[in-house]
Design a binder for these strands. Structure first.
Length: 113
DNA sequence: GCTTTGACGTATG
DNA sequence: TCATACGCCAAAG
């Protein structure tokens, strides 16, 4: 297991429950800016024994990355809603649940809602 | 090795 | 909001 992969897994595992992060944010946090596709690739190759909060990883647009209607898509929506994250039409409001939004609030004092 | 694919991202129109 | 183009790079064939 390459070190870069471990950092990606660690970054995903660090997402707090009830919050979400984009592939790009995970890659950047893992020290791999611009390697968002690597994150997606790893999630598809994640070993069975590894229990990761993969459902908290979304596209930069806030959309669920999996095909709408697929089993994985439904599972992700269910897991997210179970944590209090609103999923509307396969999309999450990043300005509200994203980690970046949290940081922005602290920096600029933007309203939480 | 080269080509194709893919749970992606940003820029443009 | 949707489509297209381009950049990115690990795996699979």
């Amino acid at each position: 297991m390459p070190d870069s992969h471990r950092r990606v897994y660690a970054a995903i595992a660090a997402i707090p429950p009830g919050r979400v992060a984009s592939y790009g944010a995970i890659a950047a946090r893992a020290g791999l800016p611009g390697r968002a596709r690597l994150v997606g690739h790893l999630l598809g190759q994640t070993p069975d024994g590894m229990r990761l909060p993969w459902h908290r990883v979304l596209r930069a647009s806030g959309h669920v990355a999996l095909a709408p209607g697929s089993a994985g898509f439904r599972a992700q929506c269910r897991l997210l809603r179970a944590e209090g994250v609103e999923v509307k039409n396969g999309r999450v409001a990043l300005w509200r649940f994203g980690l970046d939004a949290d940081l922005d609030r602290e920096l600029w004092g933007l309203p939480a809602e």
